[in-house]
């Protein structure tokens, strides 16, 4: 009873349930403005993606037909035609690139994740990151100097070689990560039952990491398929089918270079071809990205 008569200091009369945000306070207003700005930036960032996908689908998707995939590119002002040779050329060059970069990349990653200790592994990881930042046009210049000049001809090999160098950093980095995710206990168990190091890696660690490695390779392939700069003066372009009897030692068409070549000509039929070609490229990238997402959702261990 007596306690009631003594008034509490104001600070202790605070009832937490009555607390309210003061929307007039500059701190709150500042926060609300910044939230609005960040939402605005998020929307701004996605607008170009939406617009590019929209135009490529409208302009390119509507031109899709069977002929597109089996016919040769049309001359100016002639209706019809397709980019069968470019599609085959892209597949050949990406395959050459993968055939070089996957074995080298996976072995290099095995060294980094399994055997590499100390300075060498550090330096190789560093070199790999730097290599991934080398502009693709420089890789093209390099492939030109090494292969085109030596063989005195533009070729699918030079294009494939350039692609291999561009794919290598992605494959090494993703395989390295994939191998590191395999728990140490699995390796210990394998060594414990008498396996050699190479048996442990090839029979136990690598199989467990395969889904993630495949994902990395798929993404590298998707990126390489869209690369244009390293192909312009290594594989060049041609209106004709790849010539196997010549061991592919001649200019080879590719989808990306076709899009580039036909984008800068004034002929409407070839421009349509460019849009159809980029629709195929974008669709392929989209498909592999989604597939890669779904594949990494599953883990062996």
């Amino acid at each position: 009873m007596t306690t009631d008569s003594v008034p509490k200091p104001a600070a202790f009369q605070l009832d937490p349930t009555q607390l309210q945000r003061d929307y007039g306070s500059p701190r709150i207003v500042f926060g609300l403005i910044m939230t609005g700005v960040s939402i605005l930036f998020m929307v701004l960032a996605l607008i170009p993606l939406g617009l590019v996908l929209y135009y490529v689908t409208i302009e390119g998707g509507s031109k899709l037909s069977w002929d597109l995939f089996v016919a040769l590119p049309p001359p100016p002002l002639v209706e019809g035609g397709g980019f069968g040779n470019a599609l085959v050329g892209t597949i050949i060059m990406v395959a050459i690139g993968a055939a070089i970069s996957v074995p080298v990349g996976v072995m290099a990653a095995i060294y980094l994740a399994e055997f590499g200790t100390g300075k060498i592994a550090d330096w190789v990881r560093f070199a790999n990151k730097v290599l991934s930042g080398v502009p693709s046009i420089i890789v093209g210049v390099f492939a030109y100097a090494v292969l085109v000049v030596t063989f005195r001809t533009y070729s699918a090999w030079a294009g494939g070689f350039a692609m291999a160098i561009l794919m290598l950093p992605t494959i090494i980095a993703s395989t390295d990560e994939a191998l590191k995710l395999v728990p140490q206990e699995v390796r210990q168990a394998s060594v414990g039952i008498g396996a050699n190091d190479y048996q442990t890696v090839l029979r136990v660690v690598l199989p467990a990491a395969v889904p993630a490695i495949v994902t990395g390779v798929t993404l590298a392939v998707a990126r390489a398929a869209g690369e244009t700069a390293p192909l312009i003066f290594t594989a060049l372009f041609t209106q004709f089918w790849p010539n196997w009897s010549n061991w592919l030692l001649e200019p080879t068409a590719s989808l990306s270079v076709m899009v580039y070549n036909f984008a800068i000509v004034p002929f409407e039929n070839q421009q349509e071809m460019a849009f159809a070609g980029s629709f195929v490229l974008v669709f392929f990238v989209l498909l592999t990205s989604v597939a890669a997402r779904l594949a990494t959702a599953r883990r062996v261990y």
Partner: peptide, 24 residues
């Protein structure tokens, strides 16, 4: 999903951006 869409922005081949730039 938004993170994926932003990643996709990087995956679109540069020649496609070039084409879009020229015509749109």
């Amino acid at each position: 999903i938004l993170v994926f869409l932003v990643e996709l922005l990087a995956a679109v081949p540069s020649v496609v951006y070039g084409l879009w730039g020229i015509f749109v």
